[in-house]
């Protein structure tokens, strides 16, 4: 897959970091504001997709990246399951219970496990969307060949 013009490359270089940071912000503030793991993860995935689209890449590299991101995806959802499963052994001993201290409403570190769930979901969604994108791009390249 070819890259785009130098203008697009330069603009991408400038804004891609901001998009990534914004995604991280949405993920970490999921328990306080609208958004959360899914929305933030989609934004983070968007920043990666923008990079691949603007700079282009050859198919072997894309395949390698797809393998990597699918492993990260599985790890993200596995982290979620471990967090939920840990609740069976801690505190009230109920699956999915919120076993960490709740803190004060409105502060960043509050709401117990929910921010951790959001981070796990964020990792999972970002990696999953990126994997889907890469898979579709790879199919397309293979069809054109």
């Amino acid at each position: 897959m070819n890259g785009m013009t130098p203008i697009v490359k330069k603009v991408t270089q400038l804004i891609v970091g901001l998009i990534f940071l914004y995604g991280i912000y949405i993920i970490t503030h999921g328990h306080l504001t609208p958004g959360g793991g899914f929305a933030g993860g989609a934004v983070v995935a968007g920043s990666f997709i923008l990079l691949v689209l603007a700079y282009g890449s050859d198919i072997l590299k894309l395949k390698k990246r797809e393998e990597g991101s699918s492993v990260v995806e599985s790890l993200g959802i596995f982290l979620f399951i471990v967090l939920a499963f840990a609740a069976i052994f801690i505190g009230t001993k109920v699956f999915f219970a919120n076993y960490l201290p709740k803190g004060v409403i409105g502060e960043l570190i509050s709401a117990g496990v929910i921010p951790l769930y959001n981070i796990a979901v964020g990792i999972e969604v970002a990696a999953a969307l990126f994997t889907i994108f890469l898979a579709l791009v790879i199919y397309k390249e293979e069809v054109l060949k």
């Binding site: 599985s74 959802i77 596995f78």
Partner: peptide, 13 residues
């Protein structure tokens, strides 16, 4: 639910 789900996401790793 937990065991098959956990297995499903451990296998690719």
């Amino acid at each position: 639910v937990i065991l098959p789900l956990g297995a499903a996401f451990l296998i690719p790793v």
